[in-house]
């Protein structure tokens, strides 16, 4: 599956990475070769093989419904770039 600059631009936008055309051209080469390497997977016969998402065949453990976390807002917001009145600030979101 050949990679086009538009694929790179599209992925960059989905991943919210700034990317100008020159950057995209550079990535087309790198990513294209990585994907060519990845394409070797198509050689493997996987008919009837279930995908494996986790290396161990274990199942989800459930947590009791208890409130265990208190208010640590001030502590957590010490590392925040922009806060006011306890709120995280971002450029105006237009609905």
């Amino acid at each position: 599956m050949a990679l086009e600059p538009s694929d790179v631009q599209r992925a960059a936008h989905l991943a919210r990475l700034a990317m100008n055309d020159a950057d995209a051209a550079g990535y087309v080469d790198d990513l294209g070769r990585i994907l060519a390497m990845v394409d070797q997977l198509q050689e493997v016969d996987t008919d009837g093989v279930a995908p494996l998402a986790h290396p161990l065949d274990t199942t989800q453990r459930l947590r009791a419904d208890e409130v265990t976390e208190g208010d640590q807002r001030d502590h957590f917001q010490r590392v925040a770039p922009a806060v006011e009145d306890g709120l995280y600030l971002v450029p105006r979101v237009v609905e």
């Binding site: 990845v38 997977l41 493997v44 996987t46 093989v49 995908p51 494996l52």
Partner: peptide, 13 residues
């Protein structure tokens, strides 16, 4: 499917 699902199948193998 061509990438992710395939890779997870190969992972099982």
């Amino acid at each position: 499917d061509a990438y992710y699902t395939k890779a997870q199948q190969v992972r099982r193998l």
